[in-house]
Simulated assay, not measured.
Amino acid sequence: MNKSISQKEFSELSGMSLSHVSNLEHSRANLSKEVLETYISVLNCSEAEANELQKKASFSNGLRKSPDPKSPNTPLQVMLAEFGDRLSPNGREAIRKILERETGEEMNALLFSSNQCAKGQKTPRRRPKRPSLHPSRFVEIALAAESARQKLCGNVRRVDVGHVVEKLIHLDQRFDCEVCEYLPPAFEGAFAVIVGHAEGHTLFVEQERYHSALNGVYFARHVIAHELGHHFLHPDKLRSDKALWLPPQELAKNTAKSFTSDNQIEQVVDNIEEVEAECFATLFLVPWTEFLKGTETKYLASDCGEQLDEVKRISRFMKIETVLNEFRAAIWSKGIRKHIVFGNAA
């Protein structure tokens, strides 16, 4: 319509039958890659128009592939599956309230029910145990995260990851970030990865997931903070004249189904570098001193925008006396005599 071309004219120009064109444009057939390329070519689309067509085609195809196409709920299910990861926590809460109001059902009970194993379903294998961090290394990472946080965003309660990335680019000539529509195949389906090269480090982030992080999706925020952890903690392992990166873990895989809530994702983290980057990510989003104030983990996670499971994981560390003594020694060595970590001794 925008190009003032009728279906009949388009049929003649494209070589496709009029009935096929009609089926495509009335949502009765999937748009294959070849058909999409034909539309882009015949309509002489700009790059922006071509991207928009590809995006809409992908969504439309997903709608037709969904189960029970006659169901009135199908479009809603597809929309949530496609765009759910881009909703902010406030957006998801608003949807939850609408569902409870209009159905009379308690969503928490339904979510619990949906997580139960079906009859006869095999119990999943236990995931490998994470490597352990020595208390002194844990404290070292916590203080590094605190220093980076102060430098990049000061004393704000909730980190703005977009602002952090922009400021780090400005302050550190050896750091850059590139937001891409899709990451190269070499990154094994990840949506965020940091790459070392002769000039420093470049953080590659998939566009949709980056916007998710900017919109407050906890998991996406955590993954970006995780990759920043590699920049601060592992520069030697990333230093290279050729592109070098630490292989993406499961936490960076681009699986839309994993983005349906803020605290359910349990990552497979099986080497010490990933454990350290995980630790940095949470302590960058939630300062270590906040764990000493006695705030419940669920409120701490909500206030700082971090996954509840990760906050609980760090909280357990912060209750170990050996770890607290390591913090006290580190703070004391800096000449600081009054600090929350010393408690009444201050």
Rank of each mutant, 00 (worst) to 15 (best):
S14K: 05
M16K: 13
M16C: 05
S17V: 09
H20E: 08
E25S: 04
H26A: 10
A29K: 01
L31Y: 09
V35F: 08
T38H: 03
T38M: 10
I40C: 01
V42M: 01
E47G: 02
A50E: 13
N51L: 15
K55F: 13
K55E: 10
S58W: 03
S58T: 12
F59E: 01
G62T: 04
K65G: 03
K65V: 03
D68L: 05
K70E: 15
T74M: 11
L80Y: 06
D85V: 11
D85A: 14
D85E: 08
D85W: 04
D85L: 13
N90I: 14
A94S: 01
A94T: 12
A94C: 01
I95W: 11
I95Y: 14
I95P: 08
R96M: 13
E100Q: 11
R101V: 11
T103S: 14
T103K: 03
E105A: 11
M107F: 12
L110P: 07
S113R: 13
S114Q: 10
C117L: 08
K119E: 10
K119F: 14
K119H: 12
Q121K: 12
Q121D: 01
K122H: 07
R125I: 11
R125D: 13
P128L: 10
R130C: 06
S132P: 07
L133F: 03
H134Q: 12
P135V: 11
S136P: 02
R137Y: 06
R137W: 03
F138M: 11
F138C: 07
F138I: 14
E140T: 10
E140A: 08
E140G: 08
S147T: 12
L152Y: 04
N155C: 05
R157C: 07
V165D: 01
V165W: 04
E166F: 08
F175Q: 14
C177K: 13
E178D: 14
V179N: 01
C180H: 09
E181K: 05
P184Q: 08
P185F: 06
P185S: 05
F187I: 00
E188T: 03
I194S: 04
G200A: 07
E206Y: 03
Q207N: 07
L214S: 00
V223S: 02
A225T: 04
L228R: 08
G229S: 06
G229K: 03
H230I: 09
H234S: 10
H234K: 12
K237I: 00
S240N: 15
D241I: 15
K242G: 08
W245D: 08
P248M: 06
K253N: 04
N254A: 15
T255C: 04
S258W: 10
Q267L: 14
V275C: 06
C279W: 11
F280T: 04
W288R: 05
W288V: 15
L292A: 03
L292K: 10
K293T: 15
T295A: 02
K298L: 12
K298V: 15
S302P: 00
D309V: 00
K319Y: 02
E321I: 05
T322S: 07
T322H: 05
V323Y: 02
L324A: 00
L324M: 02
N325M: 07
F327N: 01
W332L: 14
K334S: 12
K338D: 07
K338G: 04
I340R: 13
A346I: 09
A346C: 11
